[in-house]
Design a protein around this nucleic acid. Sequence first.
RNA 1: GGCCCGUUCGUAUAGAGGCCUAGGACGCCUCCCUUUCACGGAGGAAACACGGGUUCGAAUCCCGUACGGGCUACCA
Length: 506
Amino acid sequence: MNVRVRFAPSPTGALHIGGVRTALYNYLYAKKNKGKFLLRIEDTDQNRWVQGAEEYIIESLRWCGIEPEEGLGYGGNYGPYRQSERKALYYKYAHHLVQSGKAYYAFDTEEELEVMRSRLSDAGVAAPKYDASVRMEMKNSLSQDADYTASWINSGQGYVIRLKVDSGNTISYVDLVREEVKFASEELDDKVLIKADGMPTYHMANVIDDHLMEITHVIRGEEWLSSTAHHLLLYQAFEWQPPLFVHLPLILKPDGKGKLSKRDGAKFGFPVFPLAWAGQTEEDSFTGFREYGLEPEALINFLAFLGWNPGTEQEIFTLDQLVIAFDFDKVHKGGARFDIDKALWFNQQYIKQIPGDQIAQRLKPIIESNGWDYNPESCLAIIQLYLERVHKINEIPVQAYYLFTELSTYDQEAFKKHWKPELKVKFETLLADISSISSFDAQELESVLKEHLKVIGLKPGDVFPIFRLALSGSLHGPTIFQMLNILGKKGLERLHAQLKIMLDGL
RNA sequence: GGCCCGUUCGUAUAGAGGCCUAGGACGCCUCCCUUUCACGGAGGAAACACGGGUUCGAAUCCCGUACGGGCUACCA
């Protein structure tokens, strides 16, 4: 089989991380089977269309390295790939369904629908819906005669086209993840196929496009599982061979209470979008994983494991390795919670493999925008020192800022705790002794410094924490010899100046 | 509420009837390395939702219950 899969998002805003994972699984499956992965834009809801969303989707997939090779922005022989541009097509097919008795026109107003629902619900019907049991009591081309229907349509009053769902059938299919799934047709409503504005609903457009674009596997989120019955009915009505369906487990909030949503980023303190999104309002604007500092390879690796695993103990996978290892029989059925700690761990694994000069190139603009001097050599040295201490590259200039520029603050509490006033004179001797040092090789520095300590009668435990605070402001970080190695003479000067400041602050 | 789907350590998961005293990973804790932090190394706490079956034997199969999630629009 010539595998063709599609990622079909709606341009209603930023592309959610769950969407990225769906795109990823589509991509992996396509590549694994030497098939095609295409992008289709489902913009059938004109009210929810958002400027810039299409571009955002394309850029996101590109950043993640899972680019489609066909579809909107990529060309292909099955276009157009934007559903709004296929409007006439859907209507033609819907009309055909009406003619063959598989669908019908419906004229009910919103109020009339509401009346029907509340009447049914008052009568104790658990799930009031427009279906075979109420169809003939409603205003449609089945309950009314041909003249009425013709004149209504000619009058230009709005109408929709609904699928005629017969009761008494069982619709079943074999999901590649969930195995056999069954639905009773009584549970299904007469879904609207064409809306009053002439646009198709998702269900209609989806089925027609998947058929016309020769999609072999529909790989989508679990939120679509319930409507698959309707889609199957549509394939039946058209007498088309349906594609295979694969419903992916949802990505849940960290607390497991529902699927991860837009606002959860702010709530839980990490992004839920690949790239930053500037909406109309501040509330609708979000940061992305790119800006947060995750490497796309790490994000993809992490995302791949949210709902799938290779069955081995290997965790670090390149995209190509994922392509080889991926399969639906290893995809889980239950939803997976988003765990930012694990994502950061993946990122740490990845950044440790990036060559230092590449990281330096990325740090350069940040350093310069901070107004610091960019020195390739010391930058490289700083990277070497800090790469294993951070989870994200953008943490380096934050944590190691004191190696790029002047010290701005220090931990006063720590100083008070470690400073022994009775050692003041010895400290002064030490500082005077080392001010003539001219070699800043870390190892040499260490032996020289320790030698001085011994002569003066100071213990490393009394001196090093103080030096560390004077040099970096905090008790954490690389060895003071490494710091001095990078800072050079300036480090010695800082030692003097900062110690004075700290003593004055007592 | 109805329908559908699901449920192994805190998290993501391994597990396809005996290999399970349930494995590894992230996180957490202890120790080692070390002037500190991190890295690395060694250990530790930590799970089969519950109840019935089936079977010589069940985390694995079946049925119920509980809990969680999805859907229930002229949204996708």
